[in-house]
Structures are given as C-alpha cells and as structure tokens.
Amino acid sequence: MPGEGTESELAQRAAAGDRAAFAVLAERHYARVHALAWRWSGARGDAEDIAQETMVKMAGAIRSFRGDCAFSTWAYRIAYTTAVDYIRSRSRVIPFAPSKMQELAESTVRDLPEDAAMNEELWRAVRALPEQQRDAVLLVYGEDMSHADAATLMACSEKTVSWHLHEARKRLKISLEAAI
C-alpha cells in the first residue's frame, strides 16, 4: 500500500512518477495547505482557490523534488508563495472608482456563516498589516513556525522577522484599541 510509506519515501516515489504516492501526499497535505491559505486570504473561496492552485503546482513540480528537504517544507513553501502571490494579484485589481465598487459589491457572493467568525477584528487587523508584517505574524503565530523558519520562507533574516513581529504587535495594539 502506498499509504504506508514514510513521507520521504512517498515523496521520492512521487518524484519518480508514482501516481499513487503523490495522491497520498496530496491528500495528507491538503488540510494544512488549506489552513494556510485561509489564514492569508480570510475567505473560503479564496482559500480553496489558493489551496487548489498549490496542489496543482505541487503536482507539476514534484518530479523535480530531490528530497533535499522534507516534503512538508517543500509543500509549505509552494503554498506560502502561492498565497502571497494570490493576494497580491487580487489586491492589484482592486483600486478603482468607487462607482465600480458598488457594482462589485452587489455581484459578490456572500460568504458562509463561518467566514464571519474568521473575519473578526483580529484577523481584519492582521490582514491590514503591511505585507511582510502580516506574513511574519501569520507564519509565527498562525503556522506556529520558529523565527528562523519564517525568515527562510520570507527570504529575510531572523532579526528582520522579529522586527516585523515587533512592529506588527505595536500596530495591532493600536488598531484593535481604535476598533473598540
């Protein structure tokens, strides 16, 4: 059974073209990828899109996976970059005339009830942070990563991550206080 292998064995086999092995890996990692996607995007629709895109990218790239790192790390990096790219590209198309906003607001499909919980003040404030502060907060607190891991993903130094966190906490405190 392909499901019985260790993760690295599965990854090696998937990289060699073993379809079943990849299927197991994809199945195992979906929830985590999805959780990350939700943290960054804050809406079910976006989260599912990001997650799907991540899975597709993983499928396309698995053959070049060399096993130099854990599969989960590898998958994580794809998920993270996909989420950040997605949010950027989405934010790029947003600034336009207010008259258009109404139009769009009306065409928006309402989020599901649990989305409301996800969009409470804290999340809102976190997502309003500058990109790198947001990423640092979500990686360290949301994803429970160490500063070093977050630093590698964000392509900056650990000190920078700490600094972003420090700044982020300051801002969150201010914005959350203002919201009360």
Binding site: A26, A31, H34, A47, Q52, M55, M58, A59, L122, V137
Partner: peptide, 27 residues
C-alpha cells in the same frame, strides 16, 4: 492581542478538497 487565536481556522470542505486533489492528479 492574543495572537495564538490565529491558529484556529475552519476545516476545509470535502467538496473543495476533492476538486483540488482531482485537479492536482490531472496536473
């Protein structure tokens, strides 16, 4: 603010998961 709350996210929907996995396998 209690940032550990950022850990909690809703679980994925089965439907979306299947779709994503199907797309991944096709890819």
């Amino acid at each position: 603010p209690d940032l550990t709350r950022l850990k909690d996210v809703p679980p994925p929907r089965e439907q979306a998961k299947r779709a994503a996995l199907a797309a991944a396998m096709a890819a």
